[in-house]
Amino acid sequence: EGESLESWLNKATHPTNRQEDWEYIIGFCDQINKELEGPQIAVRLLVHKIHSQEWEALQALTVLEACMKNCGRRFHNEIARYRFLNELIKVVSPKYMGDSVSEKVKNKIIEMLYSWTVAFPNEAKIADAYQTLKRQGLVMS
């Protein structure tokens, strides 16, 4: 009890915790819901992991998906900001990190972005970010 967001996320994305990661993922989501600034802190931590090497990045994206389902409107508000969406664009776009990132990570980000444009049709910033990638020919529909 009383684990910090950072320690929950480190456990959830640690390669040696592959079997019991789900327990840590839910622990991370629960901790977000307990803290006043949970979503803001969590999103910054997730960005750092998404910019790490492949396994941690993929696992962080799985954690992000769980947060979108379990952490409600407060969390959605943080995702629907360019401050966060730009970090995803940096990973996918060859103008930034795209050339040194695995296809698996980039494709998962694109799929997630697309799913958010469907789930949150009135969140214009999410649609803008997706269109930016589409204009650059980075979306294989």
Binding site: N77, I89, T132
Partner: peptide, 14 residues
Amino acid sequence: NYDFHDDSDEDLLE
């Protein structure tokens, strides 16, 4: 409940 809502944001990366 006290809902600290910070609306500041960046510009979209092109």
